[in-house]
Design a protein around this nucleic acid. Sequence first.
DNA 1: TAAGTTAGTAGACGCTTGTTTACTCGTCAA
DNA 2: TTGACGAGTAAACAAGCGTCTACTAACTTA
Lengths: 186, 186
Amino acid sequence: MDETRQRDREGTRRRILDAARRLFADLGYDQVTMRLIAAEADANIALINRYFGSKRELFAEVLAMQGRFPGVLDCPEEELPRRLAEYIAERLRSDQASPVMAALIRSSNCPEIHDLIRDRVSSAILEPLSARLSGPDAAFRARIATALITGNGTMRQLYGPESSDVPDREAVIARLTAIFEACLSR
Amino acid sequence: MDETRQRDREGTRRRILDAARRLFADLGYDQVTMRLIAAEADANIALINRYFGSKRELFAEVLAMQGRFPGVLDCPEEELPRRLAEYIAERLRSDQASPVMAALIRSSNCPEIHDLIRDRVSSAILEPLSARLSGPDAAFRARIATALITGNGTMRQLYGPESSDVPDREAVIARLTAIFEACLSR
DNA sequence: TAAGTTAGTAGACGCTTGTTTACTCGTCAA
DNA sequence: TTGACGAGTAAACAAGCGTCTACTAACTTA
């Protein structure tokens, strides 16, 4: 309480940003309070707005911090279904979901950041995926595939990883590949 | 203000329940305040808890009010993909989403009612769908199909209906049918 | 060493939330 | 007509929220 603390602007800023990233991913935007972030970062609550302006701007910076949808989309069109299937299969089993994705899904109903979420989904998944698709109705096909990805996140949020007894990894990937092919094929 | 009001217990109760159903579907659990429900129902806020106990119990009653996942699942196994595809296609275009589904998706991150949401998704979609599937890994296949359904709701919430130029209804249904077949086939 | 800058702190601000209390008064049985 | 019941009302409750202000004290610079 009455301990003195090292003065470390950059360090404190980074601790806050890290804590926010973790908490937003775990709990979603509106379940995370400024006081919770401050406690997790072991920093004073007033410093959050001093360094980031507001909770909303902090969330925006957390989103900006992350790269785009993990390299998954960087491949020729014909490999997309398999790559997406492997990604989902990983997320099905793994203990932690993708931090950005989790933050997006858990926060998608908060009107204050609705535009941030939408823009992020667009720029990180929807648009790059759509741009990689040849043939007609690329936007629509990309939207369905994206729905599958976000829906998987929602189910994971509801039931946790691997709620039902999941078949072996190869079978999962094979099925998911077939599904994404049905989504994305021209 | 100083007008006297008719005393109508059942009527008031129903107005509150209707208002709650509309608002929960439109905004999700935690964006709906007791005062908003009271205003929409043109009733006093204290009456909500008098008749329903608490906000949470009111939400539970709204969920219980609705039938299960609209008759979509009442068909032989081989017709399931087509039926689900038609359902999604309808929800893609229509101005209003399914009230229950909307409430579920918009509220899925509120911890206070997490168990209500999960149980409802289980009993209304996941379990009946899984029970109708023959062959191995029925639960897993049902989970993927459910992910597609809820994910479609999330995308709809983010982008509204028909954000991208959607192809004609027949093409949409054909593609969605193929996708659900890939999800559900043994 | 003295002055200025600024990271860090404590606490309050105004507001909203779900919930509850104390009360008014219409309705109906005795 | 009177008394009890209960639907409806207004106002307050405690708790929590994001934000902001006034302040302390550590570091830098002259």
